[in-house]
Amino acid sequence: MSKVKCLLCPRGCELGSGDRGDCLARMNVGGKLQTLVYGKPCAVHVDPIEKKPLFHYLPSSSSFSIATAGCNLHCMYCQNWEISQREPENTRNIDLQPQEVVNQAIAAKCRTIAYTYSDPVIFFEYAADTGRLAHKNNLLNVWVTAGYINPGPLKEAVSFVDAANIDLKGITEKFYETVPKGTLKPVLDTIVTMKREGVWVELTNLVVPTYNDTKEDFLRLCDWIVENVGVEVPLHFSRFWPMYQLKNLPPTPEETLTLARDIAISKGIHYTYVGNVPGHKGNNTYCPMCKNIVIARRGYMILEYNIVEDKCKFCNHTIPGKWQ
Protein backbone atom coordinates (compact mmCIF):
# COMPACT_ATOMS: atom_id res chain seq x y z
CA MET A 1 0.00 0.00 0.00
CA SER A 2 1.21 3.52 -0.81
CA LYS A 3 2.78 5.83 1.74
CA VAL A 4 1.05 8.93 3.03
CA LYS A 5 2.81 12.12 3.97
CA CYS A 6 1.66 14.18 6.93
CA LEU A 7 1.74 17.91 6.14
CA LEU A 8 0.95 19.15 9.61
CA CYS A 9 4.42 19.84 10.94
CA PRO A 10 7.92 20.33 9.56
CA ARG A 11 8.83 16.70 10.27
CA GLY A 12 6.76 15.70 7.25
CA CYS A 13 6.52 12.03 8.27
CA GLU A 14 6.04 9.63 5.38
CA LEU A 15 4.09 6.74 6.75
CA GLY A 16 3.61 3.27 5.32
CA SER A 17 0.46 1.37 6.18
CA GLY A 18 0.27 0.90 9.96
CA ASP A 19 3.15 3.32 10.59
CA ARG A 20 2.85 5.95 13.24
CA GLY A 21 4.16 9.52 13.05
CA ASP A 22 7.03 10.81 15.09
CA CYS A 23 4.50 12.51 17.38
CA LEU A 24 2.89 9.12 18.22
CA ALA A 25 -0.53 10.66 17.72
CA ARG A 26 -1.08 10.10 13.99
CA MET A 27 -1.10 6.93 11.93
CA ASN A 28 -1.52 5.59 8.43
CA VAL A 29 -4.59 3.40 8.74
CA GLY A 30 -5.35 1.60 5.49
CA GLY A 31 -3.77 4.32 3.34
CA LYS A 32 -5.43 7.18 5.22
CA LEU A 33 -3.73 9.46 7.72
CA GLN A 34 -5.67 9.39 10.96
CA THR A 35 -5.43 11.17 14.27
CA LEU A 36 -5.43 8.75 17.19
CA VAL A 37 -6.32 11.35 19.81
CA TYR A 38 -9.51 13.08 18.61
CA GLY A 39 -11.81 13.60 21.60
CA LYS A 40 -9.45 11.68 23.87
CA PRO A 41 -7.67 14.09 26.20
CA CYS A 42 -5.42 12.60 28.85
CA ALA A 43 -5.33 15.78 30.92
CA VAL A 44 -8.25 18.06 31.75
CA HIS A 45 -7.86 20.80 34.35
CA VAL A 46 -9.11 24.24 35.27
CA ASP A 47 -5.99 26.43 35.63
CA PRO A 48 -5.35 30.10 36.26
CA ILE A 49 -4.41 31.67 32.92
CA GLU A 50 -1.20 32.89 34.57
CA LYS A 51 -0.02 29.26 34.60
CA LYS A 52 0.18 29.07 30.79
CA PRO A 53 1.89 31.62 31.30
CA LEU A 54 -0.15 34.49 29.90
CA PHE A 55 0.29 37.64 32.00
CA HIS A 56 -1.40 40.16 29.69
CA TYR A 57 -4.53 38.22 28.82
CA LEU A 58 -7.63 38.20 31.01
CA PRO A 59 -5.63 38.22 34.26
CA SER A 60 -6.83 36.01 37.11
CA SER A 61 -9.38 34.28 34.87
CA SER A 62 -9.71 30.50 34.71
CA SER A 63 -8.75 28.55 31.65
CA PHE A 64 -10.22 25.16 30.83
CA SER A 65 -7.07 23.26 29.90
CA ILE A 66 -6.85 20.10 27.83
CA ALA A 67 -4.13 17.96 26.29
CA THR A 68 -3.80 14.67 24.51
CA ALA A 69 -0.88 12.26 24.45
CA GLY A 70 2.05 12.77 22.06
CA CYS A 71 4.25 15.60 20.83
CA ASN A 72 6.17 16.44 17.68
CA LEU A 73 9.21 17.58 19.67
CA HIS A 74 11.19 15.50 22.15
CA CYS A 75 12.78 17.91 24.59
CA MET A 76 15.31 16.23 26.84
CA TYR A 77 13.94 18.24 29.76
CA CYS A 78 10.24 17.89 28.99
CA GLN A 79 8.34 18.78 32.16
CA ASN A 80 5.31 16.80 30.96
CA TRP A 81 7.06 13.83 29.38
CA GLU A 82 4.70 11.33 31.01
CA ILE A 83 2.04 12.39 28.53
CA SER A 84 3.98 14.06 25.71
CA GLN A 85 6.34 11.17 25.02
CA ARG A 86 3.76 8.40 25.25
CA GLU A 87 1.44 6.72 22.79
CA PRO A 88 -2.22 7.53 23.43
CA GLU A 89 -2.87 3.89 24.35
CA ASN A 90 -0.42 4.28 27.24
CA THR A 91 -2.07 7.26 28.92
CA ARG A 92 -5.32 7.41 30.85
CA ASN A 93 -7.69 9.14 28.45
CA ILE A 94 -11.25 10.23 28.81
CA ASP A 95 -13.86 10.59 26.12
CA LEU A 96 -14.52 14.33 25.74
CA GLN A 97 -15.90 15.47 22.42
CA PRO A 98 -15.61 19.19 21.45
CA GLN A 99 -19.18 20.05 22.51
CA GLU A 100 -18.54 18.52 25.92
CA VAL A 101 -15.27 20.47 26.32
CA VAL A 102 -17.19 23.69 25.64
CA ASN A 103 -20.02 22.70 28.02
CA GLN A 104 -17.58 21.88 30.80
CA ALA A 105 -15.62 25.10 30.24
CA ILE A 106 -18.82 27.12 30.56
CA ALA A 107 -19.89 25.17 33.64
CA ALA A 108 -16.48 25.84 35.23
CA LYS A 109 -16.92 29.59 34.51
CA CYS A 110 -13.85 29.72 32.29
CA ARG A 111 -13.43 32.46 29.69
CA THR A 112 -10.87 30.54 27.68
CA ILE A 113 -10.05 27.02 26.58
CA ALA A 114 -6.32 26.30 26.70
CA TYR A 115 -4.80 23.66 24.46
CA THR A 116 -1.68 22.95 26.43
CA TYR A 117 0.58 20.52 28.40
CA SER A 118 1.65 18.57 25.28
CA ASP A 119 1.19 20.55 22.03
CA PRO A 120 -2.05 21.46 20.22
CA VAL A 121 -0.25 21.01 16.88
CA ILE A 122 -0.44 17.23 17.22
CA PHE A 123 -4.14 17.25 18.14
CA PHE A 124 -4.91 19.86 15.50
CA GLU A 125 -8.28 18.49 14.31
CA TYR A 126 -9.60 18.19 17.85
CA ALA A 127 -8.30 21.66 18.80
CA ALA A 128 -9.75 23.18 15.61
CA ASP A 129 -13.25 21.74 16.05
CA THR A 130 -13.28 22.63 19.74
CA GLY A 131 -11.90 26.10 19.03
CA ARG A 132 -14.56 26.93 16.44
CA LEU A 133 -17.30 25.69 18.75
CA ALA A 134 -15.78 27.72 21.58
CA HIS A 135 -16.06 30.92 19.50
CA LYS A 136 -19.73 30.23 18.86
CA ASN A 137 -20.18 30.06 22.63
CA ASN A 138 -18.27 33.27 23.44
CA LEU A 139 -15.18 31.50 24.69
CA LEU A 140 -11.65 32.35 23.56
CA ASN A 141 -8.89 29.94 22.60
CA VAL A 142 -5.38 29.85 23.99
CA TRP A 143 -2.60 27.76 22.48
CA VAL A 144 0.45 26.85 24.50
CA THR A 145 2.74 25.59 21.82
CA ALA A 146 6.28 25.10 20.63
CA GLY A 147 5.16 26.58 17.31
CA TYR A 148 6.51 23.63 15.32
CA ILE A 149 3.90 23.67 12.60
CA ASN A 150 3.77 24.11 8.82
CA PRO A 151 2.51 27.39 7.28
CA GLY A 152 -0.68 25.82 5.83
CA PRO A 153 -2.17 24.52 9.07
CA LEU A 154 -0.87 27.60 10.88
CA LYS A 155 -2.89 29.80 8.53
CA GLU A 156 -5.96 27.81 9.50
CA ALA A 157 -5.07 27.95 13.21
CA VAL A 158 -4.83 31.74 13.38
CA SER A 159 -8.51 31.91 12.41
CA PHE A 160 -9.57 30.38 15.74
CA VAL A 161 -6.60 30.97 18.10
CA ASP A 162 -6.95 34.17 20.10
CA ALA A 163 -3.85 34.06 22.27
CA ALA A 164 -0.72 31.95 22.36
CA ASN A 165 2.22 31.37 24.55
CA ILE A 166 4.91 30.17 22.18
CA ASP A 167 8.01 28.44 23.46
CA LEU A 168 11.15 29.93 22.01
CA LYS A 169 13.28 27.20 23.49
CA GLY A 170 16.63 28.45 22.26
CA ILE A 171 18.00 30.71 19.58
CA THR A 172 20.38 28.45 17.66
CA GLU A 173 19.73 25.61 15.23
CA LYS A 174 22.27 23.60 17.22
CA PHE A 175 20.16 23.89 20.37
CA TYR A 176 17.01 22.80 18.51
CA GLU A 177 18.86 19.82 17.02
CA THR A 178 20.22 18.71 20.38
CA VAL A 179 17.52 19.33 22.95
CA PRO A 180 14.05 19.32 21.31
CA LYS A 181 15.24 17.35 18.24
CA GLY A 182 13.71 19.81 15.80
CA THR A 183 14.63 22.94 13.87
CA LEU A 184 14.50 26.61 14.84
CA LYS A 185 13.38 28.30 11.62
CA PRO A 186 9.74 27.09 11.58
CA VAL A 187 9.32 28.23 15.20
CA LEU A 188 10.53 31.74 14.37
CA ASP A 189 8.16 31.82 11.38
CA THR A 190 5.24 30.79 13.59
CA ILE A 191 5.97 33.57 16.09
CA VAL A 192 6.09 36.20 13.34
CA THR A 193 2.95 34.88 11.62
CA MET A 194 0.85 34.67 14.78
CA LYS A 195 1.83 38.18 15.81
CA ARG A 196 1.17 39.56 12.33
CA GLU A 197 -2.24 37.88 12.16
CA GLY A 198 -3.40 39.50 15.39
CA VAL A 199 -3.04 36.60 17.82
CA TRP A 200 -2.02 37.86 21.27
CA VAL A 201 1.50 36.41 21.65
CA GLU A 202 3.69 35.91 24.71
CA LEU A 203 7.00 34.05 24.54
CA THR A 204 8.61 31.62 26.95
CA ASN A 205 12.27 30.69 27.10
CA LEU A 206 13.02 27.85 29.51
CA VAL A 207 16.58 28.46 30.65
CA VAL A 208 18.48 25.17 30.91
CA PRO A 209 21.91 25.21 32.60
CA THR A 210 24.75 24.49 30.14
CA TYR A 211 22.42 24.35 27.10
CA ASN A 212 20.97 27.83 26.55
CA ASP A 213 22.06 29.92 29.53
CA THR A 214 24.93 32.08 28.29
CA LYS A 215 24.94 35.84 28.01
CA GLU A 216 25.31 35.44 24.23
CA ASP A 217 22.20 33.24 24.11
CA PHE A 218 20.14 35.88 25.89
CA LEU A 219 21.53 38.71 23.76
CA ARG A 220 20.76 36.87 20.54
CA LEU A 221 17.28 35.88 21.67
CA CYS A 222 16.40 39.43 22.71
CA ASP A 223 17.85 40.93 19.52
CA TRP A 224 15.70 38.59 17.44
CA ILE A 225 12.57 39.49 19.40
CA VAL A 226 13.18 43.25 19.15
CA GLU A 227 13.85 43.06 15.41
CA ASN A 228 11.03 40.72 14.45
CA VAL A 229 8.10 41.15 16.81
CA GLY A 230 8.94 44.29 18.77
CA VAL A 231 9.52 45.31 22.36
CA GLU A 232 5.88 44.97 23.47
CA VAL A 233 5.73 41.17 23.26
CA PRO A 234 5.95 39.82 26.83
CA LEU A 235 8.87 37.49 27.41
CA HIS A 236 8.99 34.88 30.18
CA PHE A 237 12.31 33.39 31.29
CA SER A 238 11.34 30.22 33.02
CA ARG A 239 13.29 28.18 35.54
CA PHE A 240 14.21 24.63 34.50
CA TRP A 241 13.59 21.83 36.96
CA PRO A 242 15.61 18.57 36.53
CA MET A 243 13.34 16.23 34.57
CA TYR A 244 13.18 13.33 32.15
CA GLN A 245 16.59 12.97 30.45
CA LEU A 246 18.24 15.94 32.16
CA LYS A 247 17.92 14.89 35.78
CA ASN A 248 21.69 15.26 36.07
CA LEU A 249 21.49 19.06 35.83
CA PRO A 250 20.75 21.44 38.69
CA PRO A 251 17.71 23.76 38.58
CA THR A 252 18.46 27.08 36.88
CA PRO A 253 20.18 29.40 39.38
CA GLU A 254 18.14 32.48 40.19
CA GLU A 255 21.07 34.72 39.19
CA THR A 256 20.98 33.34 35.63
CA LEU A 257 17.31 34.21 35.29
CA THR A 258 17.94 37.67 36.73
CA LEU A 259 20.77 38.14 34.22
CA ALA A 260 18.48 37.10 31.35
CA ARG A 261 15.83 39.55 32.52
CA ASP A 262 18.35 42.37 32.90
CA ILE A 263 19.62 41.77 29.37
CA ALA A 264 16.07 41.82 27.98
CA ILE A 265 15.37 45.09 29.80
CA SER A 266 18.64 46.59 28.51
CA LYS A 267 17.53 45.64 24.98
CA GLY A 268 14.34 47.60 25.51
CA ILE A 269 11.89 44.71 25.93
CA HIS A 270 9.15 46.22 28.08
CA TYR A 271 7.58 43.21 29.75
CA THR A 272 10.10 40.63 30.91
CA TYR A 273 9.20 38.01 33.48
CA VAL A 274 10.89 35.35 35.55
CA GLY A 275 8.82 32.19 35.92
CA ASN A 276 8.88 29.30 38.41
CA VAL A 277 10.56 31.48 41.05
CA PRO A 278 7.76 32.76 43.31
CA GLY A 279 8.60 36.06 44.95
CA HIS A 280 11.10 37.16 42.28
CA LYS A 281 10.65 40.80 41.23
CA GLY A 282 10.29 39.45 37.70
CA ASN A 283 6.85 38.06 38.65
CA ASN A 284 5.46 41.62 38.45
CA THR A 285 4.41 43.79 35.54
CA TYR A 286 6.04 47.23 35.59
CA CYS A 287 4.83 50.23 33.64
CA PRO A 288 7.58 50.97 31.11
CA MET A 289 6.86 54.69 31.38
CA CYS A 290 6.67 55.46 35.13
CA LYS A 291 8.26 52.17 36.34
CA ASN A 292 5.54 51.58 38.94
CA ILE A 293 4.21 48.06 39.50
CA VAL A 294 0.96 47.78 37.56
CA ILE A 295 0.37 44.13 38.45
CA ALA A 296 2.04 42.66 41.51
CA ARG A 297 2.12 38.85 41.51
CA ARG A 298 3.44 36.03 43.58
CA GLY A 299 3.70 33.09 41.23
CA TYR A 300 0.25 32.86 39.59
CA MET A 301 -1.44 34.91 42.27
CA ILE A 302 -2.32 38.56 41.71
CA LEU A 303 -1.62 40.68 44.78
CA GLU A 304 -2.17 44.16 43.38
CA TYR A 305 -3.82 45.41 40.20
CA ASN A 306 -3.20 48.95 38.98
CA ILE A 307 -4.54 48.91 35.43
CA VAL A 308 -7.63 50.93 34.61
CA GLU A 309 -9.19 49.75 31.36
CA ASP A 310 -5.90 49.23 29.53
CA LYS A 311 -3.87 52.00 31.14
CA CYS A 312 -1.41 52.37 33.96
CA LYS A 313 -3.27 53.87 36.93
CA PHE A 314 -0.30 56.12 37.76
CA CYS A 315 0.68 57.67 34.41
CA ASN A 316 -2.04 56.65 31.94
CA HIS A 317 0.42 54.77 29.70
CA THR A 318 -1.26 52.03 27.65
CA ILE A 319 -0.24 48.52 28.69
CA PRO A 320 -0.76 46.11 25.79
CA GLY A 321 -2.93 43.06 26.34
CA LYS A 322 -6.54 42.00 26.81
CA TRP A 323 -7.53 43.09 30.28
CA GLN A 324 -11.30 42.51 30.35
Binding site: A43, H45, K51, A67, Q79, I83, T116, Y117
Partner: peptide, 8 residues
Protein backbone atom coordinates in the same frame (compact mmCIF):
# COMPACT_ATOMS: atom_id res chain seq x y z
CA UNK B 1 1.23 12.88 40.24
CA UNK B 2 1.31 13.61 36.55
CA UNK B 3 -2.32 14.55 36.24
CA UNK B 4 -1.89 17.10 39.02
CA UNK B 5 1.48 18.66 38.30
CA UNK B 6 1.55 19.22 34.57
CA UNK B 7 3.36 22.36 33.53
CA UNK B 8 1.79 24.93 31.22
Amino acid sequence: RYYKNLAG
